[in-house]
């Protein structure tokens, strides 16, 4: 059951007028213009025991992604494909509003939007993950760990997932006569095959303004948000409207244009980080 949030921060709604005033002059409280994301920092290989990992900072928001690759059975309708699964944990240390316990609707939505945006475009080549067709395949687990919440968890999570996947390596294995498969965790058989790069661009609608990469305060005063997933060819590979209000047709058009153009900033950050560490 989904319930209207009833724990509402009071300070940001007082700040709303201040923010709107700034937006009318093309400014943000942190000196950004309306369409530029915060500073992105990406570090990969932060957890050696994971097959791939990344720590992403987007302003003060911090998300860690860990990729673990295990042997499992394929889905019955796709015997010739491996499996990609995305989960998100809103760890209680990340925000005073996060509580321990199973993922709530926000964590589930985040994981499912990232999952769909990677899956629909075929970002990870699932056909390269078959060990024995119909029986044994590699399962790629992407776990998103929110460490510090200052807004826009979607974009930070997608950057972390992408950086972790692009630096992940597929473990080697040994096959016994009994058909058992033993994963040789210390030996790699090469990099995980990633065919597409995907980023998401989140915009918030606040009054008549559309702003890129909202902070936590900006999210709290926003009417609605739009998450647009874009691949390296500039195609839209996923989209989710989130938040309680709606968009006019004209605003939707604006959101798509702003998002497609802002996606270039994220692609550049990702490319630079991977080149530096790769």
């Amino acid at each position: 059951m989904s319930t209207t949030p009833f724990k509402i921060p009071i300070v940001p709604s007082i700040k709303r007028e201040t923010y709107l005033n700034l937006y009318s002059r093309g400014l943000r409280l942190d000196n950004r213009d309306l369409y530029t994301p915060r500073r992105v920092e990406i570090e990969t290989g932060v957890v050696e025991k994971a097959n791939g990992s990344a720590l992403v900072s987007l302003g003060n928001t911090k998300v860690m992604a860990g990729v673990k690759i295990e042997v499992g059975t394929p889905f019955r309708d796709t015997p010739d494909q491996g499996v990609l699964t995305v989960h998100a944990e809103f760890v209680p240390l990340a925000s005073p509003t996060f509580e321990p316990g199973p993922p709530d609707e926000n964590a589930i939505e985040l994981a499912r939007v990232v999952d769909r945006s990677l899956r629909e475009v075929g970002a990870v080549d699932l056909s390269s993950l078959v060990i024995r067709e119909g029986e044994k395949v590699w399962i790629v687990w992407v776990d998103l760990y929110i460490l510090d919440h200052d807004g826009n968890l979607f974009d930070a999570s997608m950057l972390a997932a992408m950086a972790a996947l692009k630096t992940a390596s597929l473990p080697d294995y040994e096959e016994y006569e009994t058909g058992e498969i033993e994963v040789l965790r210390d030996k790699s058989q090469g990099p995980l095959k990633v065919d597409h790069t995907v980023v998401t661009v989140t915009t918030a609608k606040i009054g008549n303004y559309i702003i890129v990469d909202p902070t936590l305060d900006e999210e709290a005063i926003s009417d609605a948000r739009m998450v647009v997933a874009v691949d390296e060819q500039g195609r839209i590979v996923g989209l989710q409207k989130t938040g309680p209000h709606g968009y006019t047709r004209e605003e939707l058009e604006r959101v798509l244009n702003i998002s497609l153009s802002a996606s270039k900033v994220y692609f550049k950050s990702l490319e630079e980080a991977l080149a530096r560490q790769g």
Binding site: V121, I236, V237, Q240, K241, Y247, R249
Partner: peptide
């Protein structure tokens, strides 16, 4: 999902790959 009488789109998702032009036409 939309409320045409007040001109608002209130539910909007895309699962899959589309160009910007296709999104506009689909809308």
């Amino acid at each position: 999902g939309a409320a045409p009488d007040i001109g608002l789109v209130t539910l909007f998702q895309i699962n899959g790959v589309m160009t910007k032009e296709e999104v506009a036409k689909g809308l």
